[in-house]
Design a protein around this nucleic acid. Sequence first.
RNA 1: GCGGGUGUAGCUCAGUUGGUUAGAGCGCGGGUUUGUGGUACCUGAGGUCGCCGGUUCGAAGCCGGUCACUCGCCCCA
Length: 419
Amino acid sequence: MDKLRTVRGVNDLLAENLNNHNFVINKGLNISKKYCYSQIDTPIFEFSEIFTKPLGKTSDIVTKENYTFEDRSGDLLMLRPEGTSGVVRAFLNAGLTQDIPQRFSYFGPMFRYERPQKGRLRQFHQFGVELLGISSSMGDLEVISLANNFLKSLKLDNKIELKINSLGDTDSRLNYRKILVDYLNDFKKELSEDSIKRLKENPLRILDSKNPSDQAILIKAPDVLNYLNEFSKDRFEEVCDGLDSLNIDYKIDKNLVRGLDYYCHTAFEFITDQLGAQGTVLAGGRYDGLSEMLGGIQMPGVGWAAGIERLALMINANYKNNPDLVLIGLSEKFNLDLLQMIDRLIKDGIKTEILYTGNVSKKLKRANKINAQFAIIIGEDEISQNIVNLKNLKTGFQQVMKLGDAINEIKSLLNINSE
RNA sequence: GCGGGUGUAGCUCAGUUGGUUAGAGCGCGGGUUUGUGGUACCUGAGGUCGCCGGUUCGAAGCCGGUCACUCGCCCCA
């Protein structure tokens, strides 16, 4: 380490950015609380299998993008690359299978060893929700409705569109997989290198390839939706009809596939064109097999996760942290008096900062810079008469009065209600 | 992991074909103002030109490597 810096793909969050993040998180928590989702917090690392089992052996997240390490007792651990597996694990651990449905919301850092880009970091943050124990399409519709209202509350609904698809149940999926592989095998020579590899490992992923020659081949490829069995097809129709009656706009994208193995039936992504290659801002789907993959009982689930960084890039939460009031002493010997005064001021809900150093002129300059509304200035005279000099920094008007009167004046002018 | 672009002061950026002591604006410090801010004027500090090596009498500028950011691919939120 020759210079002070963070490791690659990992950022500090300074006031303004953090404010945007918190804005996104708070909107998410608020709206999910109204849908009766309880917040849950799970560890940021788990035994590796918690992720490797459900995510699938061929997913990049498991094969090359994880942060894995052995701890001192020799256990193989992984920094979580996503949130769902941990939440389901916690749900199983807590024995909540006896009390379904369960609704969870969560947020926190996730870790993937990827090539960093804007909106794609190695430590990044997700906000997500999971609904466990509801197998009908109503579950899918509920979480999509929640997502839609979440994005609306961020005023992003006009910049983002919803794409959905269905992967069908296991039977449909395996059947379609066979048909797709048969079709693609005829074009093997024209497929991209990546896609040839995926033909064996995870052929469905070829569907969302951006390679032009792949795309040309895909135009005539068999359509997943035509190969769903009766049950899966009906289920997908229920979801589409449901979205119609909820007035949620969507586009069916037959090439939309989720990257992780545990998904089935409904898959959806909310996508923007404003973030370049990182356009997926919120994505999710149904994962009825996940619980069993972890060794639990059969337990249907559906949920989504949103990229907090990506959403934060699209909003501007108007960061403000200016004091209502600054306290100024004529010299440093009044600083302790000011510190005593703060007890009372914060009880009245007044955001107060003490300016400790410099002469009065410097302190007022500083007060301007941090955009304070009022200043209380004290010196020998004020102390001896038990009064303060209250100055309105916007108008320049100032007068001496009792501290209690000053507090009332500030509160009434700034509309502050004490708590 | 692959391909392209960028990297000069705290910030935004100039810097000609390789040529003396690398500049501007904003910001920051001090002063005009020892109990009163915003404006104005004066003034000062701040740079290993991302890092390492090479070419050259001489490199911020050229060459190689490397690190970081960024765009696309990949992956995905």
